[in-house]
Amino acid sequence: MGMFNIFDITGSGMSAQSVRLNTTASNLANAETVSSSTGETYRARHPMFSTALDEAMGGDGSKLGGVRVDGIVESQAPLQRKYAPDHPKADDNGYIYMPNVNPVEEMANMMSASRSYQTQVEVANTAKQLMMKTLTLGK
């Protein structure tokens, strides 16, 4: 009850955003990982968010929710094929396969995730200050 729910909600938001930051980091780190077949090539990963209602949030029927990460999905965008016969990983036809990571998209994703995380921290901080003030009433 009361303001303690705010910490659950912001906590779930922060962990969801950090999952998003993690996948972004993984995508950017693997942006140049080449391979010799489509099967082994790294594909961009993105988390799927949904609202976690009730039961996860104390279950007092308050109809409010935090965020839940439903899973991490691999992007279905086509892989980039590059003709590089001199590359040690080139296949029989001289092609190498590059991940379908779009660095610009990932950077935008990273900024959005970090802003959202900051917002969560500020909300939790404000709630904490309000609680502290309530605790020191009359002093």
């Binding site: 909600i9 998003r20 409010l64 965020v67 959005s112 969560q120 909300v123 709630a127």
Partner: peptide, 24 residues
């Protein structure tokens, strides 16, 4: 008023946490 404000803060915190959730 305190109770209602606390509840409102909670509701808005939930909105902010779900700023990136599709369909919220």
């Amino acid at each position: 008023a305190l109770k209602v404000h606390a509840k409102r803060g909670e509701t808005i915190a939930s909105n902010l946490a779900n700023a990136d959730t599709p369909g919220y």
